[in-house]
Design a protein around this nucleic acid. Structure first.
Lengths: 243, 243
DNA sequence: CGAACCTTTGAGCGTCCTCAACCTGCGTGG
DNA sequence: CCACGCAGGTTGAGGACGCTCAAAGGTTCG
């Protein structure tokens, strides 16, 4: 049965094998495909009853602002990722989400999720798995900030993005197109933009990675992995869990 | 109906109002209450088919080790918290969990969770909510490491612990008993133990908090909150969501 | 009473920050 | 078509924050 596959279906069936009933339940959702311009705020901290999305095209990021106005980017989202899954269950969202490029996304209402749980319990497992994987990425970012130097951190982030994009066919061994600015990297890595610039220069001089003009090129992928201490296992989905 | 309430029941009904069917389903689990000694590793990175626990007594922590041997503590767990919920769905656990004190916990098998989803869909919502709240804490820790100074960070962690313990009746405005060493704080805060010591001294001299001999005393709770930029909303559960 | 663990303090240093300036490419409007 | 504004990138200089190394005091427990 190769009917039109939505991003949500693709996302969840990577985790759990879905029956026809599961698929039919899912098919009733994702009718709401929407487009947003770069810079558009899909969700902002404190917003009530935010809905979630599955990103089909483009890049987004989620972030929090501290009381003294500093921004910490929690994660970047690329096609296939959930946007705002975490706050779908909160009365008020604890973070903001912003489109970095023009994006296309299908909306998922909280009620869609609850209804699906009632009708197709496997979907509950799949959604919990998706949430767990998102959390695993945040945890790895925490390790990055807490226990790695600026260079290791930067290398690690670029490797993570490359790996994640590779899983959805948007990157290869050579590199990937990347719409991020050095300010974005700085806010994700807990560094200043000036220092990010110096780190990128050094990584380039060491012939490890080159990030210029919207493209990341892996000059020495293995060397970069060693430098970053990169272990991709936290990103792996390893095929469906439940048969 | 005041039957014997398990930690798991208490945990989940804080999130979602549970029917008798839900409660009965839950009651079939949590038969396995277990005790572990301080230092016992409940889960280690790479372990397969780890089970989860709900902590009833004592303190634990979850952490990851980088390839070059540095430890980053992701979160501390106090009574009422899940242990290892995230990796219950992964074939191999992405983090380690260790008892910091003697602990008591009830085991929750992955199959318990899946079965419960089938029989009582509300439980799926409750578990997803619990996972989301855990993630919200990790996210706040990320902000802490990325965008706060050593003093703000330390203050923020102590305030978070105080607030969480207060929710389960183990802390008041004055402070709480705390089994952590300065090494634990250092590994959670991305600092060296030496620097943690200096920061604690300074916070004590400024008459904001005192952390000595296993007890945290809030000398100036409001002042501390201002310093840390502490906003407890990411911790609030705001009562049951679904009726 | 020794050993292990934790805390405390000092000295010197390196990473990363802030401030500041200048450059580039690009879109807009006169 | 050029002038301008603006966002992003680049580089330098100086300084602060937090690190490492080192040593000594305190507690607890066998």
């Amino acid at each position: 049965m190769v009917m039109h596959e939505s991003p949500l279906t693709r996302k969840l069936s990577a985790f759990v094998w879905l029956s026809d009933v599961d698929l039919a339940t899912l098919a009733r959702f994702y009718r709401r495909r929407r487009t947003f311009a770069p810079g558009h705020a899909l969700t902002h901290e404190g917003q009530t009853n935010a809905s979630a999305f599955v990103l089909a095209e483009g890049w987004a990021c989620s972030y929090k602002i501290t009381p003294d106005g500093e921004r910490q980017i929690v994660d970047f989202q690329v096609p296939g990722d959930f946007l705002g899954l975490r706050s779908i269950l909160f009365r008020t969202s604890d973070h903001s989400i912003e489109a970095l490029t023009r994006i296309e996304a299908t909306e998922v209402l909280a009620s869609d999720i609850f209804d699906a749980f009632g009708e197709a319990p496997r979907l509950a497992t799949a959604v919990l798995w998706a949430a767990s994987r998102d959390e695993a990425m945040v945890v790895e970012h925490l390790v990055n900030l807490g226990r790695r130097t600026a260079e290791e951190r930067t290398a690690h982030l670029l490797l993570e993005l490359g790996t994640r994009l590779n899983l959805v066919g948007l990157a290869d061994q050579g590199g990937f197109d990347c719409p991020l600015t050095q300010y974005h990297l700085a806010d994700a890595l807990g560094l200043s933009a000036v220092h990010v610039n110096r780190v990128l220069r050094h990584l380039r001089e060491e012939k490890l990675v080159t990030f210029q003009k919207g493209r990341v090129v892996f000059d020495d992928l293995d060397g970069l992995k060693v430098l970053a201490g990169f272990d991709r296992s936290y990103l792996d989905q390893e095929g469906p869990l439940l048969r």
